[in-house]
């Protein structure tokens, strides 16, 4: 666990984020910040707005109100591609591989565009990302031939190949066996050790607790508690939200 994250200025932050789809309010005045090198977990019942918040942070979803700042620069109007190139990578809850390309091509394209590398440097970056995610032996397989677990690994490999400063992980551990989860936790712990800033949405609390410094709990589009993981999980409002909603 690192020191007091509040002491360093946030690398990625959003404030007053509102998002509504028609009459449906998905996010309501959400403030969120993560410091450089910090690992933050986000929990909350289904429908709490966690994935929508990721969409807003990654630039895939324009917020209805509020602002996103990255390294002190306002990014609110910037698209997803530019945010990725500036160092914000994400994985998708339901993997979205490029099905017509091989595993290596998927990852190499991420290195070429997200990290702006070319030639051998891009290939090195892709190979390293695949090795870290234990996919290197599948390098030439079509992405369409991968099962769910390997597709999740490919999501992570592709995100890593963009050489991010901040990585947003959306339920990357769901559907894994305990052994696989153990490997994933070790990998994410190592990424954190390398100085990567991590925001991780996960229902599997014990996995989160092994890596994160701070926990945020969302419910019905707002942040209802944040702070030290133990304190957040002991919070009566968090317990009520969980018992009232779906519990993982």
């Amino acid at each position: 666990m690192s020191g007091e994250p509040a002491m360093t200025p946030p690398v990625l932050a959003c404030s007053g984020i509102d998002k509504h789809f028609g009459a449906l309010k998905v996010l309501n005045a959400v403030d969120f910040a993560v410091a450089s090198g910090e690992a933050v977990g986000i929990v909350g019942p289904n429908g709490a707005g966690k994935t929508t918040l990721f969409g807003v942070l990654a630039g895939a979803i324009p917020p209805s109100g509020g602002s996103v700042r990255y390294g002190g620069v306002d990014l609110t109007g910037t698209g997803a591609a530019a945010r990725c190139r500036s160092g914000i990578a994400r994985t998708h809850q339901v993997p979205r591989p490029f099905l017509g390309m091989s595993v290596f091509e998927n990852t190499m394209t991420a290195a070429q565009f997200g990290a702006g590398l070319s030639g051998r440097a891009a290939a090195d970056c892709a190979a390293e990302a695949l090795e870290r995610t234990a996919l290197l032996h599948h390098a030439n397989r079509p992405a369409a031939a991968l099962g769910l677990l390997d597709r999740k690994r490919l999501e992570l490999a592709r995100a890593l190949a963009t050489c991010p400063r901040v990585i947003l992980l959306d339920e990357i551990g769901g559907g894994l066996t305990e052994a696989e989860l153990g490997l994933l936790i070790a990998l994410i712990g190592k990424l954190k050790g390398d100085g990567l800033t991590i925001v991780w949405i996960e229902h599997i609390l014990h996995a989160l607790l092994k890596v994160i410094d701070r926990l945020v709990c969302m419910s019905a589009g707002t942040v209802i508690a944040e702070g030290h993981p133990d304190a957040v999980m002991a919070d009566p409002e968090v317990r009520r939200a969980y018992l009232g909603g779906a519990v993982a």
Binding site: A58, G59, A60, G79, A80, A81, A82, C84, R85, A89, R90, H92, R96, P97, F98, L99, G100, M101, E105, N106, M108, T109, A110, Q112, F113, G114, A115, G116, S118, R158, A159, A161, T162
Partner: peptide
């Protein structure tokens, strides 16, 4: 070239292509 790879990525999943830095 990388443009060909990006075009195929866009064909397969436009949002994912943007998420790895491709200017769709």
């Amino acid at each position: 070239s990388r443009i060909g790879a990006a075009a195929q990525a866009i064909r397969d999943d436009e949002e994912a292509a943007a998420s790895i830095g491709i200017d769709v």
